[in-house]
Simulated assay, not measured.
Amino acid sequence: MASEIKIPNMGESVSEATISNILKSSGSFVKQDEEILELETDKVNQVLYAPESGELTLQVKKGDIVKIGQVIGTINPPTVEQTLKSSDKKPPKPIEPAFPPPSNGKAKFTTSDFVSSLQQSTVSPQPTPIVEKEANTSRKQMSSLRKIIAQRLVEVKNTTAMLTTFNEVDMSSVIAIRQKEQESFQKKYGIKLGFMSFFIKACVAALKEIPEINAYIDKEDIVFVQSYDICVAVSTDRGLMVPVIRSCEQHNFGEIEMQLSAFAQKARDGSISVDDLKGGSFTITNGGVFGSLLSTPILNPPQSAILGMHSIVKRPVVIDDEIVIRPMMYLALSYDHRLIDGKQAVLFLKHIKQTLEEPSRLLLDL
């Protein structure tokens, strides 16, 4: 009896996927657990394996969009002959003679016979399609992942009232703590103390003060998220991945840094899972690692706000009526104005600024 091939469950928030690559063609013989095709969602890629050995029949092609649970093909149990063929090596192909054998009962194959045979066997070549090339350009097919990302970004722009507000933070205190504690931190946790863990902790404190930033709109309701599950954008060759660090208020700096490092590695080698990416109520993106001085980050739906970090640059600032040089960073908060008022967005950034300039506030939960 034939076995059905179904699209597996790929996470709560995933309802459909794209056939990004077919690894075994329809009609071929496959072995159990052999890779059949690749599925691609707006979050991750996943390989689909043969549930058993047999003859593969596929009802989809590359680029098709499929639903979770959809039957896309079958595997018919192998016959005895197919089983033997799959285990035996194919015999070498016999070498074709350079000249055709004598025909028409002739012992000799004359020059005229050779010319005549060529005329009979010659097939008119198919016309080569003409491909017009544009000057100084090249083309590359957009991946399914990039198509879905593009669609979602346009959807965010068209369905939200997105605004961005800015502030700047003096990073002197954070830099001083990192320099002072770096060696002991690395000995204890086996990883460097970065800037992101400071920002995550500062965001948690600010989210507690202004819960609307940690909420989202669902039709006519406002859903307030009671946990602090923060997404951190990670850039990869395939595109932007946004894994979630859950319950950030319960983790110390070392635990957060270790999770960040593990997610970054998994995103780069393609082993990140749907569970790593689903959920989250607030996002942080760091364009500063690429040298960005200022930007307006776009929302990560259905979330209502996203924080953008940028390069740390030494600039002259006025402190106590004196001009001094300080390592400064611009912060950007993009938010959905349907839910979040300008006052709340400004106060949220101000709270983060104060926390980072006086990190002792984290100890007092201010």
Rank of each mutant, 00 (worst) to 15 (best):
P100L: 05
S247T: 10
C231L: 07
K353S: 14
L153F: 08
E16D: 11
L240H: 00
K6D: 09
P297D: 07
N76D: 13
V156K: 03
Q82D: 13
G279D: 05
T165K: 04
K108I: 11
E38M: 05
L347G: 03
L363G: 15
A205W: 01
K62R: 15
F109I: 03
A135W: 05
K62M: 13
G27I: 06
V60T: 13
N300F: 05
K85N: 14
F109K: 01
P101S: 15
L293P: 12
V225M: 10
S235M: 08
P129E: 14
S295R: 06
E358H: 14
Q354C: 06
S197N: 09
R152D: 10
D229W: 00
N252G: 14
T110I: 02
N136M: 10
T285M: 01
F198R: 04
L260R: 06
T110P: 00
L294M: 15
L362G: 10
A264Y: 01
E34D: 05
S292T: 13
Q119F: 06
H310R: 00
M241S: 00
I323A: 12
K157P: 09
K147E: 09
A262K: 15
H351K: 15
I75L: 11
F282C: 02
P91S: 12
K192D: 12
A215E: 02
S281N: 10
K147G: 04
R268N: 13
K24W: 03
